[in-house]
């Protein structure tokens, strides 16, 4: 098969949907056009185009410093854009605060903060709750359900520093679930998580996808890419390739992404070795 290189026109880069019945007239959950982001004067992401379709789990793969974290932070409006537009469900994020659910990297917070697991998950509901309003029964119910989904209910009243790394990761997932968003962005949710928890998380993501949610996951383990994701985005400062895993996750594309430094190639990558 011909690996898809850098995207020329928008249509070329779109993955072929398995069933095109999925609302063609509905706006895309995420649509990025010629996005450039730079820190200081150095462009970290350059001319990124990306259309993500509803009900897909998309893996974002690339070497360290490729700009993966930068991409999802830009999508969430946490970074100033040098150029480009980002539409969520066809509209800018500013018009619909809280439309994106977020699972940050675990190191991004102070785990000694005096809050319980329950409090943290509750914070997921704050965005949609609005200013000055206090969380009520509905929010507590959402919180309970989210904790259940990640099997952390029995830890609800623990202070968050008394948790293992995998448990902390699940707290972040529960907080994101409590956001009840349609589009989720996750920054390395599998980092430092054991195999059983990893399987449980991917299972959870799949059930979320099957209810029509869309999930972008930054991922480092190339071995599991083919297994976990519907689509894959190979990123190294720009889009190297993007599309359904079967089409795009090829040895040649991986070589381009990692600049030939890739010592061990994943077993499941397509193409001759």
């Amino acid at each position: 098969m011909i690996p898809q290189g850098e995207q020329g026109s928008a249509d070329e880069g779109r993955p072929n949907l398995p069933d095109s019945s999925l609302g063609a007239d509905r706006p895309l959950p995420l649509s990025v056009r010629s996005l450039t982001v730079s820190y200081d004067r150095k462009a970290v992401l350059w001319n990124v185009d990306l259309d993500v379709f509803a009900g897909r789990i998309v893996g974002v793969v690339g070497p360290n410093g490729a700009g993966k974290t930068t991409l999802i932070k830009a999508i969430m409006g946490l970074l100033p854009l040098q150029s480009g537009t980002i539409l969520i469900n066809g509209k800018p994020l500013k018009k619909q605060p809280g439309a994106i659910g977020y699972v940050p990297q675990r190191e991004s917070v102070d785990w000694d903060f005096p809050v319980t697991v329950h409090d943290v998950v509750m914070m997921g509901t704050y965005g949609t709750l609005g200013l000055f309003r206090r969380p009520g029964r509905k929010q507590r119910e959402i919180c309970r359900r989210s904790l259940d989904q990640v099997h952390m209910s029995s830890y609800a009243h623990r202070q968050i520093s008394n948790l293992s790394g995998g448990q902390q990761q699940r707290v972040f997932l529960a907080r994101a679930l409590a956001q009840e968003a349609d589009l989720y962005l996750m920054d390395e949710p599998f980092a430092g998580v054991d195999a059983a928890t990893e399987a449980a998380i991917i299972e959870l993501l799949r059930t979320q996808r099957d209810t029509g949610r869309t999930i972008l996951v930054i991922h480092h383990d190339l071995q599991s890419v083919a297994d976990y994701f519907d689509d894959v985005l190979l990123l190294n400062r720009h889009v190297v390739a993007y599309g359904p895993v079967g089409d795009v996750f090829t040895v040649e594309n991986l070589r381009t992404t990692y600049g030939g430094k890739l010592a061990v190639l994943p077993e499941h990558a397509n193409g001759e070795t």
């Binding site: 994106i100 977020y102 991004s108 956001q179």
Partner: peptide
């Protein structure tokens, strides 16, 4: 960051 992203 999470607070900002969630619309606060």
């Amino acid at each position: 960051e999470f607070a900002t992203a969630s619309g606060i």
